[in-house]
Amino acid sequence: MSVRPITTIKTVVAGIEGAGAGIKVFTLADPDRWALPPFKPGAHIDLHLPNGLVRTYSLCNEPADNSRYVIAVKREADGRGGSRALHDEVGIGDVIGVSLPRGGLEPGADIARHVFVAGGIGVTPFLSMARHLLQIGNADFVLHLIVREEVPLAAHLAPLMEAGRVVVHRTSCAGRPDLASLVGEVGVQTMVACCGPEGMTEEFEGVTAAWPAANVHIERFVAPPPVIDPDAKPFVLSLARTGTEIPVRAGQTMLAALQEGGIDVSTSCCGGICGACKVGWIEGKPVHRDRVLSPYERERFLMICVAGSDADRLVLDL
């Protein structure tokens, strides 16, 4: 029996194929080929790699294809290790835990035209989006793919190429294209999106500065930090019985911080109503957000799944 809560979706590597330009395409599926949790076009998932790294990758398959998560990974020899682990260590049949899919774009009803600008492997978030648009018969979209020489994921791009939706810009022969001309005139019914290396996304940000924010989407290789409540402050949990100090990041729950610190705490609803995670507190200024404790109980206890702290330090009876 597992003692730790299950926090990821269990998948097995069902396929690995080379896709040119140092890229491998990994297909992840449920061990029994059960349907996987749904996702939006352009969504991404975290992979919890066997070596302990957690890395985020865009899903390349169409949302309608719900039995697989397909990701494309370029081996970055000098990267932070995620792509090397996937390329060099992961094989067919290996078990990989993944997060629920996040992000992505539902094509808006009032958007008539989509312009995607991708640099190299930055094409991955647009694959599912463009194929989704093609599938639902959306007439007006184009994918500008900027590459040095070799087109990545050619097999995956083939249906889009055949439909005449991809414009390939080879910098080795034509130099870098002018992003402003690719993006074109500001249009409230146009959605423009970019994914690529830092320099490209910065330039794109510049050329779309006058656009309405809702019509511009930039996807970065490094996921932006999660949006947190601007008033949230970090604090330290001090565990009186063991003397352990656990830092809680701004916007993080005490529960998540304790679990990260390897401390086993019992929980159930994770929403402050069941009482399973009740813990005594000794010193500090807890912010109670539960709906079970009476004012009297709150002087001694708190619910770690929802409570916060108004002071830098909170001492718990743990």
């Binding site: 299950i6 990821t8 979706i9 269990k10 449920d30 061990p31 029994d32 059960w34 349907a35 996987l36 949790p37 749904p38 719900n66 629920l100």
Partner: peptide, 10 residues
């Protein structure tokens, strides 16, 4: 039913 955590119920 669903065979594992997070998976859609069938």
């Amino acid at each position: 039913l669903a065979p594992r955590a997070f998976l859609p119920m069938r």
